[in-house]
Structures are given as structure tokens and as C-alpha cells.
Computed example of a mutant assay.
Amino acid sequence: MATSPFDRTKFVSELTALCHSLDAPYSQQKVEQILSAFDEHLDNSYVWLRCTSKPKDIVNFRLAFHGKFVDTTSIEANAGWIDIENPLAKVNRSWSSRANAEEWCDFDPSRGIAKNWVYFQRIQPFQEILSASGLPAAAASRVPDLQAAGLDDQVNFAAVDYTNKSINVYFLLDGGLTAERAAKYVALAGSKPPSEEEVQVMSDHMNPMFTFGVTIIPETGHIPRVAFYATVGDAESFPPLKDHERLRKFYREAPCHDPKRLEIICWSYGADDSNKYMKGEASYAGYNEDFSRRMFERWIESPA
């Protein structure tokens, strides 16, 4: 079954209802501005919705552009959301100048651009990602710590976060998460190790591979949070969400116009309580299962 064409009016209506239901910040005017700025790309975009377990937090939406390069920072600068010379925008352009890279976007429905993503069709060496033009040396200084934690060169995504003035590097890792392995990863952010139950649940949904994200403050090299991502089925009934009614409500009410909805769960860890939460992501429109399968095949076939 083919995906339905993106319906701008329906999306605005459904996003409005979802944000209001989850008591999330929202501006219909801002959403309309975002859609107008990216109007020519909407029909071929892959749209996601994202929510955290934190009360009244933002419900973001993501635009991913399959198989083509979209100069998102120029669009954002022309819309007045960022300065084209913004240091993080420069880092984003440096990353996306690598071969076979694509720029994606996360939007805050109340403020505009939140994050720029770079999807690498081919696995990248993280030493080069953290030494990109425009990044302070403090970012690259964390390479030895990441290596000591057991992280290798399997970088499949990177992102700049304009809201939090940080960068994110995502590693594609083999499954089989162990308590020792998890403890090393979360220690990067100064967090206590996950419980045995948490590790087991994560491991059960991370085979044969999973994504692990590291957030870095470029100017200092500080790592405030790390996160584990897993694809799940029937996320609303997923046992780890039993104490997270907001996320269960998100999965229950988030609309989807794909033949099959993809649901992702994220466990976030950090020394600060504000960085300890869970996140949910769900496809809204444009999800192509064949594309996602080819995406993983390219990563597996092209080690850094």
C-alpha cells in the first residue's frame, strides 16, 4: 500500500489537536510559516512526530528528505530563524558537505527550527565528525573518552541543536547490550548505571543493531546526556512506559497516514535529573519500509 500524499491542512489540524492534548507549546502561525518555507519539499518528505515524558515539553515534528539534498540552513536563514553564519549552522553545512549526506530538520511548533540533522548514507569516522570545520577543539577532545567507552567509528547521524546550543553524534552499534557496556556508555554523561531490568528490556529490542546518541556542548566538550534508541511494536503498551502516561497518550493519539507506523523508544540518561527521561517517536507520513531497509543495508555494507 502506498503512502498518502502529505495533506498540509490535515497535518496542521492534527498537530494542533495533539499539542493541545499533551499540553505542549504551540503556535499555528509558526507551524504555517514552517510549512510555507518548505512547501516545495513537503510532498516528498518523511514526517515524524516526537514527544518526551517531561510534562508540558515540546512535541516536535521532523521533516526528512529522501534521496535528495535540501539546503535547509539557507531556507531557515531566509525565513529569519537563524543567521547563516551561526556557528552551529556552519557545522551542519560542514557535515552535510560529505559525500552522500542529507540534511533533515526538527521543528518546535511554538518557535521554529530546533535541530538540523545530517543523515550519512555511508558510515562516518567519528574523529572526523568531531573535528569538522567550525567545531571548537573541545569537541574533538572527547574522542579518547568515547573510544575508552567502547564506541567505534560507526556514526550514521549527526545533529546540531539550536535550542540547547549543542551537537549530537549517533553511533550505529551491534546489539547485545550488557550491564557493563551500558554502564560505560552512561558514565560519559555522569549518570548512574541503568538497572538490570532496564538493560534487559533495552537489549531485548536492540538486536541485531541499535543507535546510541551522545550530546556534546561544543565550547566545553561537556557531555550532558546520552541516549539509547530502539524500535518497538505497540509502543503504547510497552512495559517501560507504564509510569509514563504522557508518552502512552502520545502513542495513543498521534495520527499516522502510513500503511505501517514505525515507533521508536528512547532512554535518556544524564547526571542532571532534567536529562533523565524517556522519548517517543512515531512516523506520521511518508514512511517507506523499503527505504529504511536499504538505509541499514548501506550502513552495514560501508564500514568507516
Rank of each mutant, 00 (worst) to 15 (best):
M1T: 13
M1Q: 13
T3E: 13
T3M: 09
F6L: 04
L22M: 01
L22T: 04
A24S: 15
K30A: 07
V31L: 01
E32Q: 12
Q33S: 12
I34M: 09
S36M: 09
A37N: 02
A37P: 00
N44V: 12
R50P: 02
T52F: 03
P55K: 09
V59T: 15
A64Q: 15
F69N: 12
I75W: 00
E76A: 13
A77P: 01
N78T: 09
G80M: 00
D83T: 07
I84E: 13
K90W: 03
N92F: 06
S96L: 01
A101Y: 06
C105D: 12
P109F: 04
P109G: 03
S110R: 05
W117L: 08
F120G: 01
I123H: 09
Q124D: 02
E128P: 07
L130A: 04
S131V: 05
P136N: 07
Q147E: 15
A148E: 08
A149C: 05
D153Y: 05
N156P: 05
A158H: 06
V160S: 09
Y162M: 05
N164W: 08
N168V: 14
Y170L: 13
G176T: 01
L177R: 04
E180H: 03
E180S: 15
K184M: 07
K184A: 10
A187V: 00
A189V: 00
K192T: 13
S195W: 06
S195N: 07
E196Y: 00
D204Q: 14
H205S: 08
M206T: 07
P208H: 07
F210S: 08
H222R: 11
P224Y: 05
V226L: 04
V226W: 00
A227E: 11
Y229V: 05
T231N: 14
G233F: 11
D234Y: 09
A235N: 08
E236M: 12
S237K: 15
P239K: 02
D243N: 14
E253Q: 13
D258R: 01
P259R: 02
R261L: 02
R261K: 10
E263A: 08
W267Y: 09
K279R: 10
G280E: 02
G280K: 04
A282W: 05
S283T: 15
S283N: 04
Y284A: 06
D290P: 06
F291I: 14
E297W: 07
E297D: 14
E297C: 06
I300D: 11
I300H: 10
S302Y: 03
